[in-house]
């Protein structure tokens, strides 16, 4: 009986936990990709709040650190595909910075999976939704880690 209650409590606690994700999306591809998910009306978890930047290259590592400091469970940086950047190479800079940032985050005890970098084009509404879903699932599974 106690075990059953504990299980139930665990379920309730899990249901109550809603990971909060901040997504930095570049205006030209990824933000448009998120718009595409909208026009296609593909439902996805409401855990994401989008911050629009003109280019993923604008995302300062400090923005990500600040998001975690403010209580974000996950941070997403979504950029144009390599070669598609509206500003030639901002997406490549963003990718480089993300790689370095992961090392800093690890030292701070923040799992790599909590900060994801990916490429979403203006037509990849479905990929965008998949990324959000994956991140929510990941954060739900690793709650508290």
């Amino acid at each position: 009986m106690t075990a059953l209650i504990r299980e139930k409590e665990k379920n309730v606690a899990q249901a109550a936990y809603q990971p909060r994700i901040v997504g930095f999306l570049c205006n030209w591809c990824s933000y448009a990709g998120a718009d595409k998910a909208g026009t296609a009306q593909i439902a996805y978890p409401a855990n994401l709040q989008i911050i629009r930047v003109m280019c993923s290259g604008r995302v300062e590592p400090q923005f990500v650190l600040q998001a975690f400091k403010q209580g974000a469970d996950g941070v997403l940086i979504l950029a144009c595909h390599p070669g598609d950047c509206h500003y030639k190479e901002g997406n490549l800079r963003a990718a480089q910075r993300h790689t370095l940032l992961l090392r800093v985050l690890e030292q701070l005890g923040i799992k790599r999976s909590r900060c994801r970098f990916d490429h979403v084009s203006a037509v990849e509404g479905e990929k965008f939704v998949r990324i959000i879903q994956e991140m929510v699932d990941e954060l739900n599974n690793k709650k508290g880690e």
């Binding site: 930047v53 003109m54 280019c55 290259g57 604008r58 509206h86 901002g90």
Partner: peptide
């Protein structure tokens, strides 16, 4: 300048 902001981030 085209306003990408990558310098500001750097």
């Amino acid at each position: 300048c085209r306003g990408c902001g990558t310098c500001a981030a750097a």
